[in-house]
Each structure stands twice: as C-alpha cells, then as structure tokens.
Design a protein around this nucleic acid. Structure first.
Length: 425
RNA sequence: GGCCCCAUCGUCUAGCGGCCUAGGACGUCGGAUUCUCAUUCCGAAAAUCAGGGGUUCAAAUCCCCUUGGGGCUACCA
C-alpha cells in the first residue's frame, strides 16, 4: 500500500511552495488510495518558531488536506534515533567526533536513483560526498537520520519533497543501505520561484496560505492554482489521447479538488521551476467566486468579525447584494467596498448642479414609482438631452465612481437611495 | 569554486521524431454586449522552441558543448 508523508519543520509558516508539497503528497495518496501522514520534524530546537506548528495545522485544515493517524513529533522519539545511531557506530559506519556522531561516506560508491519527477536517473559519486552528522551534541538527530529512520519505521513508500533535497539524497540512500533497508521511491518537486526568479520570500508579498485566506482567496482557487503550478493532467488520462477541454474547447484548467485527485499523477509533474504569478491566481479566484455554490457562507465566514457587513449579508437583501457583487469580485475582500454606500468623493460644484437637475428631471418623469425600465430609460434621455456622460450620472446617483449597477441598487434600496445621493452635499 | 537539477510567448503551460508555418490560459492591447465598474463574447500582438554543433529522409522533441537560471555545499531543515 502506498504511504506518503508531509514532514515540515516548525521553523516558520509554510509558504505556497511548502504547502504545495503537502498538497501533492495528499493528491498522490488520494489518487492511489494510499495513506497520507503528518510528521513534525522539530529536531532543531534553536530554530523552532513559536506558533509555526499551529499555523501548519491551520493551513492544512483550512485547505482540507487531511492526514491520517496521529501527528508524530520527532522531538519525542530521541531514544529511537539514539538506538539507530548506536547501531551504525557499532557497525563502524559512523564515528564520534567532538561529541557528535558522523557518518563516514564511502568514496568508491555511486549513489543513484530514479526520480519520479521527470522519470530520470540522478547520480552522485561517493568521492564528492562529505561526512555528515546524524546525531548532534544536544542528543537530537539531524534531518538525515531522523527522516530516514522514521520513513522506514512508518513504511513510507514514496518520498515526495522539495528539490532542495536532491543533494542530500545520497546521504539518505547510504543510510538505508547501512541499515539494510529498502529505500523508498523519491520524487523531488521543483521549487517555486518568485517573480524575480529568486526563491519565494516575503519580498514577493503575502506568502503563507493564511495570508491569502485572510485576503479573501478561496481554498478551491488556491488549491487549483498550486496544482497547476508545475503540474498538468497529461493527455494519456483520456483513452483517445486528447487533451482535457472545457466548454469552449480550450484546455481545461479549472479543476475541483476531486477532479485533481482523479487526474493527478506524479509523472505529470514538470521538471522546471515555475514562477509564482499572483495575477493568474486572482483570475482563478474570480472564477471560483462566481462558480462556488455557497458564496454566502464563504462571505459570512470571511466577515465573521465585521458586524456591518454581516448585518448586510444576513438582511433580506443579502442575496441581492451577493448576486450583484459576485461578478465584480476577485477576492472576498472586494465585497465590502462593493456594497459600501460610502461616497467615493465629494461632488464638484458643477456636478451638484447636474445632480439637482437630474433629481428634478427624474421626479417629474417618474413620479413616485421608479420602475427599473422607466428609470433606465429616463436616465438615458437625461444623458442625451443634457449631454452628460453616463459615468457622471452613475456617480451622482450612487455616490461612487463604479460598482454595483443602478438597476441592482434599485432592487436593493429603492429610489430613496438615489435621491439621497443626488441631494447629498 | 565543486556537485546536482533545469531551459517552449512577459508568466503558467501543451508538445514525448513527421499532425508545429508551435496550441491553450493569465496578463497586455483592440472590439462587441452593457447603466458605471465588472462579467461574458470576439480579435490582435507576443516564443527564429536559450545559442551552437551533431544523429536522422525528418528535431521544439534524441545526443554533445556553451550560456543562462535554480538547488546543495551547516552539529538547518
């Protein structure tokens, strides 16, 4: 049975790259009816960041990346690593120096494996390998030891991790060999780069999934985007060998989590480093906002601490607001400004005169009942007769330069809203 | 520096020897629809497939070199 793991170290809040690694492990497990476990690699006591583990769990939970079984902490398994370190010491594969345990790397061995990403052989010569520490003076193991021991003990079949681990894979291979254990399959995912082709970092704006969540991105969009960064469903998924197409006949790129699970294959992961493009993420988020069936619930959750917006959504007009706003949102945070009745700026003197004129005009033509069709017709007439561009009229009537349509606002607030704005200083 | 990975429009990518005068998407620019802004629709510009050598009847696709980018080079992961 296939078993994979996500093994973050709590030394910081995971960014898009780390999270994608977790997601690919999850997709791989799900796609193969396997198991996905979570292991916290807290072996570097000095670098542990308070709250990091909590953030990791929060991210996974929010995205719906569920693990099975207990969450293991390497810091609670020190005796185990000590035991295996001793074993290598007794086998003369390891030696002690300055109170730490080192592995003596053999010069005459070639370390080679077939990497699942790109399906290629990667080879390192023993002579290029330096001895390395497996047990530190503080009694904690290094990643190399703990990782190999745990992966073996937990029957991990596939190690899917970031490409930054390629260089240390020979160390791991040697450890497996020294313990006479079978090594798992390895799949090294290319790291995601920032717009300037450097490693993704704070400089590239909000970096953790939590930040994106707080900015109003949907998990569906984030997951969809992360999956498409460096992966795409190969044509071989279809019996006729054709590409997956959408309704318009274009290559499909909007995928639900279930579709991703169904289509995911590690063979289809790209070998090149993709660059994170927030523009495409925004576009995807807009698509998902317009397609998600429970937008109202998402908004309620997103604005759970915002009384004002909450009241609006829960009001009898809530549905109309959401409907009117949905095509105009790229993130959930757009909702608030969209439904706000706050004037975007003051009217100029000239605009005030037009507003008054428009008010008189509409009152005269429409009387007491401002019906949609007539309202629209009269606005157009006024626009034409007085040579006032529609965008000015929109501003005068709604108080904003752009936003939800006049007819939609008429349905929500009725004529008083417009009159107020026209009369408003 | 050494070792390793990578290389198709600005970006994400399709492509696995003939279907490629290289397709799609984001972004950009035009246009249509439209009550502003969006949405939706249509169209355009945008890659001599990093460069150079091979192999082959035929190469974006295979091989080599160069260049460029990335990773590792810690008693960090």
């Amino acid at each position: 049975m296939i078993k994979v793991r996500f093994a973050p170290s709590p030394t910081g809040i995971p960014h898009i790259g780390n999270t994608r690694t977790a997601f690919f492990n999850y997709l791989f497990a799900k796609a193969n009816k396997g198991e996905f476990i979570l292991r916290i690699e807290d072996t570097d006591q000095k670098r542990i960041v308070k709250g990091a583990e909590k953030a990791i769990l929060e991210i996974l939970e929010w995205l719906g990346i569920e693990h099975s079984g207990e969450i293991l902490h390497q810091s609670e398994r020190l005796e185990i690593y000590k035991k295996y370190s001793d074993e290598l010491l007794s086998k003369n594969i390891a030696y002690e120096k300055d109170g730490a345990v080192f592995i003596k790397m053999p010069n005459d061995t070639t370390f080679e494996w077939n990497d699942l990403v790109g399906n290629k052989k990667i080879k390192f010569e023993g002579k290029d390998q330096e001895d390395f520490v497996i047990l530190k003076t503080d009694g904690f193991p290094t990643y190399h030891l703990a990782n190999v021991v745990d992966d073996h003990l937990m029957d991990i079949t596939h190690v899917i991790r970031g490409e930054e681990w390629i260089s240390s894979t020979p160390k791991h291979l040697y450890l497996y060999k020294s313990f006479s254990w079978d090594a798992p399959y390895f799949a090294h995912l290319p790291v995601i780069l920032g717009p300037d082709k450097s490693k993704l970092s704070k400089r590239h704006g909000a970096q953790s999934i939590l930040d994106y969540r707080d900015k109003g991105y949907l998990k569906e969009a984030l997951l969809n985007y992360m999956a498409m960064l460096g992966w795409n469903p190969g044509a071989d998924k279809r019996s006729d060998g054709a590409r997956l197409l959408d309704k318009r006949g274009r290559e499909k790129e909007i995928f639900s989590i279930n579709e991703l699970i169904e289509l995911f294959s590690i063979k289809d992961v790209n070998t090149a480093n993709p660059i994170f493009d927030v523009k495409k993420l925004e576009w995807l988020n807009g698509i998902w906002i317009r397609n998600i069936k429970d937008l109202d619930k998402r908004l309620l959750d997103f604005y759970k601490d915002d009384e004002e917006v909450l009241k609006l959504i829960n009001s009898s007009k809530g549905k109309l607001f959401i409907e009117a706003a949905s095509s105009r949102m790229r993130t959930l945070s757009d909702f608030k400004s969209l439904v706000s009745t706050q004037n975007s700026r003051a009217k100029t003197k000239e605009e005030k005169e037009i507003a008054e004129k428009l008010f008189q005009y509409l009152s005269k033509k429409l009387g007491n009942d401002w019906k949609d069709e007539e309202l629209l017709l009269e606005i157009k007439n006024f626009s034409k007769e007085n040579n006032v561009p529609f965008r000015i009229i929109f501003f005068l009537m709604t108080g904003k330069e752009h936003g939800i349509g006049i007819l939609e606002l008429n349905g929500i607030y009725g004529k008083d809203f417009f009159i107020n704005n026209l009369k408003n200083e």
